[in-house]
Design a protein around this nucleic acid. Structure first.
Lengths: 327, 327
DNA sequence: AAATTTATGTCAACCGGTTGACATATGAAA
DNA sequence: TTTCATATGTCAACCGGTTGACATAAATTT
């Protein structure tokens, strides 16, 4: 059986209260008592039971994370940073991969509440989860509008979309196509598309957008259609690097020379992308800063120090003009 | 204040014990009472406090995960599967990114014990963490020997190394170099190198191995040295796909034509790799099966159903012969 | 009519640590 | 000598849910 405070007290020859005092640095404690207690803890291999402690102080220092999947390097990297920053501030993270499924997300939401997490950071959201509407606990969204009272952190999606489109135009592309995720999701990421359309129209070009199916589905059909219907395409702005990689693959199989015949730019710019496909131009998101802001805002809410603003935080992106957009 | 069982009981007009009976399906409960209680729970937005429950039943259904970083797609994907399988079995996961740092790993190990996790799955390990030696709780290692009593799950590293090396030889390479992670770590992954050396020697070829620095360090120097010292290299077997991608990058900058002049094969074969660099040949690890086995063995230990064997589980790999090893 | 099953209530102990109230005993400062 | 800061102990209530013991009463069986 695991040792408890009473066991430590017995070994150290002091009272349980004294042990608790040592653990929490409360009241007066003599130096030698402190040492005796610490020795006893070491001897017994004692670890304070945080579950009991959490119950009493009514706080767990747990943060729930709901994201589609850690398999995706963008979320993997984001979660890495969130966990890191949280750990530095004394918080632990409970991980949930919702896989873009509404039923899973609901289950996780309930599970997290049962487990008394102090707050939730969610980057997944399937419309129609009313649970987010009654915010019984602090929540921060990343790139997802969850409800009118929940703050959202994102990269400057409009600026990113603008820069990407402008780059392709600057490099001489006329027939430029955009391909993005399911627009039915209410996400700031839709601004990437909005910016693309605005820039195209401003340059008297016709915007053409292809839309992906739900997250995780096989998208190759849509990309094939893109090429079938627009064989003379000169530039593609994909709303993330994974989609961009699929476009590249299809283009190569159709013998489009990149970048001379077709230029491509993606979005995200993860570390993995930098290593695995350095040649791909992209809009790099400030992932670690997004993580910082999210944790910061969540903890402010937890500590009741949040005044309701800002509801939206946009962080600057960085254009990476690499080989796939060479002139 | 959050509602508790007593509040539900009051609203439903029954006793707290009856509510608990409904929640746990114990003893006799009438149908209409059950309905009344459920309505009260819904009305109050009641979620049972798992912290209190965990304290009493002395079990948290929490599993601690210690891995270097979710940023790396291999760990990201592995963790995705682990979390999924665990969730299906009623377990939740607490995520820790040790970043290959011994101090962090020790801290996390202590934190997890304080938080009463039921078990730990660790894929990170810096030698000399004696904490693993006194296994106060169930542990499973992935690709890492933690202590003599802790079971390890891994891909069949020897076979993978063998297949990779044989492929390069079959494709006509003579001067083949291997590059791997820090061998100081006691990991089954070292068998990739052993297999490489064995196969080379069997074919009367000279094995040459370059070793990476500690995890996460900048490795470009070592790869540059590899090419400087072996300009006539014909084949490279990298011990993971990320290293392979760095080799490709350096080779391209030196105008080596791949695969005509230089053939490359990596190791891991994550989904991300398949999307981002489908052209890279690799040894694909059965990531979801590794996750399954790990969770299965951990839960067996938790349920005291583990008899100590098998201590080592090796799962079959799959050769992916793609463009970078074309003849 | 008696025995049994079903349904619910009351009560108290327990999980392990926290905290406040209060008692007691030093050694040091006033 | 008196006061006070220091050091430790005892005790009990509490966090929220679980569980066993026991009581009671209605509905079913036998």
């Amino acid at each position: 059986m695991k040792p408890k405070i009473a066991d430590v007290a017995k070994v150290a020859g002091v009272s349980p209260t004294t042990v608790s005092r040592v653990l929490n640095n409360r009241g007066y404690i003599g130096e030698e008592t402190r040492v005796k207690v610490h020795n006893a803890m070491k001897e017994l291999n004692y670890y304070p039971n945080e579950v009991a402690r959490s119950l009493f102080i009514r706080k767990t220092f747990l943060i729930g994370l709901i994201f589609p999947t850690t398999s995706n390097p963008f979320y993997g990297q984001l979660i890495f940073h969130i966990e890191n920053i949280a750990a530095a501030l004394g918080y632990k993270v409970l991980l949930c991969n919702s896989q873009g499924r509404q039923d899973k997300e609901k289950e996780y939401l309930e599970m997290l509440q049962r487990n008394q997490v102090d707050g939730i950071i969610a980057g997944a959201h399937n419309k129609g989860i009313e649970e987010y509407e009654k915010p019984n606990l602090p929540v921060v969204g990343i790139d997802r509008y969850l409800s009118s009272a929940i703050p959202v952190i994102s990269s400057d999606n409009y600026d990113g979309g603008k820069q990407a489109t402008q780059l392709l135009i600057r490099k001489g592309c006329i027939k430029i196509i955009h391909i993005n995720g399911p627009i039915s999701l209410e996400t700031p990421a839709n601004l990437r598309r909005k910016a693309y359309e605005d820039v195209m129209i401003k340059h008297n070009l016709t915007p053409i957008t292809y839309e992906m199916e739900t997250y995780g589905t096989d998208n190759s059909e849509i990309i094939k259609r893109l090429f079938d219907e627009n064989p003379e395409v000169e530039g593609v702005f994909a709303s993330d690097d994974i989609i961009a990689s699929q476009v590249i693959k299809e283009a190569k199989s159709r013998n489009y020379n990149i970048p001379s015949k077709l230029k491509i730019i993606g979005y995200d710019g993860t570390e993995t992308k930098k290593l695995m496909m350095p040649e791909l131009s992209t809009i790099e998101q400030p992932i670690s800063r997004i993580a910082e802001k999210a944790v910061e805002l969540l903890i402010k809410q937890i500590d009741s120090e949040w005044d309701g603003a800002p509801l939206e935080t946009k962080l600057p992106v960085k254009l990476i003009d690499s080989d796939t957009t060479k002139k």
